[in-house]
């Protein structure tokens, strides 16, 4: 349907809270199908960086979809792991989008993507040690203050480790939560990719993960490569179906966490809507089989000293 013929939805009637259902990453390729067929899907997520223009079709479509479905913003450009100040222009644009679309959830990555003004468009790894933790804590606090809301931070997929790391990823994330009051976004595919690449047990990692702070789960497909020794090196490619091993980790997570909003990320080799929708329904079936998790009260903004159990 031409963009000019979309019947505007009456905004304000759709609940903005993200339900404990399956959602998908919203792609421009699917705008029209979604508006024409009104699929029964729980929610959508977008990268705010794709909606930082002043106007045009992207905002037009997103406004219509956000009027019909709950929306989550998932940033890829704030570079909270960088050893430099947050980019004021960038966080102001995030604030404007947060106010314009009032998303049910707002998340970012435990990663850096900018250095000396250059933006690398990739989620680069952070060593797990005290000085980087202090930096990330400062940046998460600043971002939460600026947006006047709690954000979720996602566990990364990593390909290398740092000799200088002094703590585990889980300890780093637990301390971050304790010092900022942020929540966590648990990406089960990242767990599998990182565990394979770093030779640790993903099941043990998930058993230790502080699921009580998880506000959202991500699932995606990975690609296979080989490292210098010819052993598996998995790439977080977001270009195919979720692997069976990752579905198993998802089951393991849900058994501990109860029903948590779950997103299918598929950003490359984007499939037809029906295939993406079917993948989301696979997660939805698992969520429906669970009792709804007792809702944790949203902590007040920016708690300086949140207890970690």
């Amino acid at each position: 349907m031409p963009i000019s013929q979309i019947t505007p939805a009456s905004s304000g009637t759709t609940p903005k809270e993200i339900p404990p259902r399956a959602g998908v990453g919203l792609k421009a390729e699917h705008y029209q199908t979604i508006l024409e067929t009104a699929p029964d899907i729980g929610w959508f997520e977008v990268h705010p960086e794709n909606y930082m223009g002043a106007g045009g079709p992207p905002h037009r479509y997103l406004s219509e979809i956000a009027a019909r479905y709950p929306l989550s913003l998932h940033g890829v450009g704030a570079s909270i792991g960088a050893d430099k100040s947050l980019d004021t222009d960038h966080i102001n644009r995030l604030k404007a989008l947060n106010e314009r679309y009032a998303p049910g959830l707002f998340s970012e990555h435990l990663a850096w993507s900018s250095h000396d003004e250059v933006f690398f468009n990739d989620l680069l790894p952070v060593p797990y040690r005290q000085d980087s933790l202090d930096r990330v804590v400062d940046h998460v606090n600043q971002l939460q203050d600026h947006l006047s809301r709690r954000i979720l931070i996602e566990n990364p997929s990593v390909y290398v480790a740092f000799e200088s790391s002094t703590m585990s990823e889980i300890t780093f994330l637990e301390r971050l939560v304790a010092r900022t009051g942020c929540g966590l976004l648990l990406d089960c595919n990242n767990v599998y990719v990182s565990a394979t690449n770093q030779n640790y047990d993903p099941v043990a990692y998930l058993d230790a993960f502080p699921v009580e702070h998880v506000g959202e789960i991500h699932l995606a497909g990975f690609a296979r490569d080989e490292d210098d020794e010819g052993e598996p090196l998995l790439i977080d490619a977001h270009d195919r179906e979720v692997a069976d091993a990752v579905w198993a980790l998802y089951d393991q997570t849900l058994a501990r966490s109860g029903a948590v909003p779950t997103l299918i990320e598929w950003d490359n080799n984007i499939p037809d809507w029906d295939i993406l929708f079917a993948e989301a329904m696979r997660a939805e079936d698992k969520l429906r089989a669970l009792p709804t998790r007792l809702k944790e009260p949203e902590p007040d903004l920016i708690l300086g000293h949140r207890h970690v159990s």
Partner: peptide, 10 residues
């Protein structure tokens, strides 16, 4: 384990 191909991913 070397990190050359691993770093190459980035």
């Amino acid at each position: 384990k070397k990190a050359q191909k691993r770093f190459g991913v980035y």
